[in-house]
Amino acid sequence: MNSAPSVSLPALLAREMRLGERLLWSGQPDARRAMLKPFGFYLFAVPWSAFSLFWEGIAIRMAFTGAPALMGLVMVLFGLPFVVIGLAMMAAPFSARRTAHRTIYGVTDRRLVELIAGRSLKVRSVEASSIGPVTRRQRESGHGTLSIETGSHRDSEGNRTTDTFVFESVPDVARVEALVSRLRETMTPA
């Protein structure tokens, strides 16, 4: 399977522009930093997977060496989900890296856009009129994460939940924040 989209991400983003809309900024998340975020899962997954595989080995051995067949089969089946969960946790950093390579963010003169190219194209956008408070987390390198509040809703339990639009691990995050703030100000009624 080809890991890169057949069309470049900037070209896909350009296709999403509306008539008369101008792209002010676009950028991709830093794939290396995206990989580090779920790395804690990986560290936990190693002993989890080792124990799960050990369990499966014992269960398979019991199933084929004289233990009651039903008991051995139950133990093998019981252990399988734990093996699958362990392998999924071990794959999490690599999956995050692959997603970062397929993601591009954009700030236009009308909205914020996130595009993820994969087997299908996922496009998420927020109109400038929905932009609320902005939170910036920045590293010394200038890379950082921008969290933009876009509204709120009540969840199934009746609790108020804040909706956010996130530009994860982008270069020159302070510049992106300034563009987003300027966009919000232009759309705020006087």
Score class of each variant (00 low, 15 high):
residue 56 E to T: 00
residue 56 E to V: 02
residue 57 G to L: 08
residue 58 I to L: 12
residue 60 I to L: 08
residue 60 I to G: 01
residue 61 R to F: 11
residue 62 M to I: 04
residue 62 M to W: 06
residue 62 M to H: 10
residue 63 A to F: 05
residue 64 F to N: 05
residue 64 F to P: 12
residue 64 F to I: 12
residue 64 F to E: 13
residue 64 F to A: 07
residue 66 G to Y: 11
residue 66 G to E: 10
residue 66 G to M: 13
residue 69 A to Y: 12
residue 70 L to M: 14
residue 71 M to G: 14
residue 72 G to K: 05
residue 72 G to C: 15
residue 73 L to H: 02
residue 73 L to W: 07
residue 76 V to S: 09
residue 77 L to M: 15
residue 77 L to K: 11
residue 79 G to E: 02
residue 79 G to Y: 00
residue 79 G to C: 08
residue 79 G to A: 11
residue 80 L to E: 07
residue 81 P to D: 10
residue 82 F to Q: 03
residue 82 F to W: 07
residue 85 I to N: 01
residue 85 I to T: 02
residue 85 I to G: 02
residue 89 M to N: 08
residue 90 M to K: 03
residue 93 P to W: 05
residue 94 F to G: 12
residue 94 F to T: 11
residue 94 F to E: 13
residue 96 A to G: 06
residue 97 R to S: 06
residue 97 R to L: 12
residue 98 R to W: 14
residue 99 T to A: 08
residue 100 A to C: 13
residue 101 H to W: 05
residue 101 H to M: 09
residue 105 Y to D: 01
residue 106 G to M: 09
residue 106 G to Y: 00
residue 108 T to M: 03
residue 109 D to A: 06
residue 109 D to P: 05
residue 110 R to S: 06
residue 111 R to G: 04
residue 112 L to Q: 02
residue 114 E to L: 12
residue 114 E to C: 07
residue 118 G to D: 14
residue 118 G to P: 02
residue 119 R to P: 04
residue 121 L to F: 07
residue 123 V to I: 15
residue 124 R to P: 03
residue 124 R to S: 13
residue 124 R to Y: 08
residue 125 S to I: 01
residue 126 V to Q: 08
residue 126 V to R: 14
residue 126 V to K: 03
residue 127 E to K: 06
residue 127 E to P: 03
residue 127 E to S: 03
residue 128 A to V: 10
residue 128 A to N: 05
residue 129 S to I: 11
residue 130 S to D: 10
residue 130 S to L: 13
residue 132 G to N: 12
residue 136 R to Q: 09
residue 137 R to P: 01
residue 139 R to V: 12
